[in-house]
Design a protein around this nucleic acid. Structure first.
Length: 304
DNA sequence: GCGACAG
DNA sequence: ATCTTGTCGC
């Protein structure tokens, strides 16, 4: 069963008693990683039942009330009805009413361990047969329905660069975007689309990173190891690491390379069954524009 | 207010 | 990621 982190967040929020408040960061720590604090806010913004899940009791860590989809005034009013005093947008006696005693099994820590386990299976020597079909994967979302992911796979023939197959899948999202946990959000919809394609790709390019990840398991590696297929990660922005010329270095290791197929670079890292140099060579070959064709076409399809 | 961390 | 017409420049 896939993890429903959105429900985990609501369950934590329901633990905050009347007359107490907690913070986005405290809920994130109870999930297992402070990096999820912004995601907590975004999920609470989508709270379908504010009467059952008192998200107004979650405020910013500086004691200011933070946002509320029905207006900040309504949030302050609800806090006052709980007996919380608010002055100038700040909760009074914040230290006294702050709740942090969550009952939790730290789901994100479990997922982090899963990443570490899978990262040991990543192989970075070239294990490619003849490459004829190259697939690209990307996911898209819409503001009007942010809880549905549209996963697109477009497969092209490398030699002709012609599209040979397109597939789109839709799936309910139960995991917010959290930096370094992207695969837990998008892998399910990838799999949904992948299961339906008829032409077996020899290589998959993924919108996101490969080993250019704090635990060397970005979404491209996650997909590669899970399917034992050659994969490459292609990111439009840098997640981590520092530039040394065109190398992206993290903790003394070159994990990725900036590829300048246009003015603004993309950041390429091997996902699985591939060396960095081979990943870069293949990406260059696939670039008609800034983004390599299979990913660019998948991006367009995911938005349609 | 700034900085900022794939999508 | 999403909200988004037309316009300018290479």
């Amino acid at each position: 069963m896939e993890i429903d982190l959105i429900e985990e967040i609501y369950k934590l929020v329901r633990q905050v008693p009347r007359g107490r408040v907690s913070t986005y960061g405290a809920v994130a720590r109870a999930l297992g990683d402070i990096i999820a604090s912004r995601a907590v806010g975004l999920v609470l913004n989508l709270n379908p039942d504010p009467d059952r899940t008192p998200c107004y009791r979650i405020i910013a860590s500086d004691g200011s009330v933070g946002g509320f989809s029905r207006g900040i005034e309504e949030k302050i009013e609800r806090l006052r009805r709980d007996g919380i005093e608010v002055r100038n947008g700040k909760v009074m006696n914040f230290g006294k009413v702050f709740f942090d005693d969550f009952d939790t099994d730290y789901p994100l820590k479990r997922l982090r361990k899963e990443q570490m386990r899978l990262s040991r299976k990543v192989r970075l020597k070239d294990e490619l047969g003849e490459i004829r079909y190259v697939a690209g994967f990307d996911a898209g979302y819409s503001k009007s329905d942010p809880l549905t992911a549209h996963g697109a796979i477009v497969t092209i023939e490398l030699e002709s660069m012609e599209i040979v197959e397109e597939m789109i899948a839709r799936k309910r999202i139960r995991f917010p975007y959290i930096p370094t946990y992207l695969a837990f959000r998008e892998f399910p919809v990838f799999l949904e689309a992948y299961r339906r394609i008829k032409i077996q790709p020899d290589l998959i390019l993924v919108d996101g990173n490969g080993i250019l990840h704090p635990f060397k398991l970005g979404i491209a590696s996650h997909i590669g190891v899970s399917l034992d297929l050659p994969t490459i990660g292609v990111a439009k922005n840098l997640l981590m690491g520092e530039m040394r010329g065109e190398d992206v270095v993290y903790q003394g290791e070159v994990l990725g390379k900036a590829v300048y197929s246009s003015r603004k670079p993309i950041f390429v890292s091997p996902g699985h069954r591939m060396s960095l140099d081979t990943a870069v060579r293949l990406v260059r070959k696939l670039c008609r524009y800034r983004i390599p064709e299979p990913v660019r076409l998948a991006h367009i399809l995911a938005k349609s």
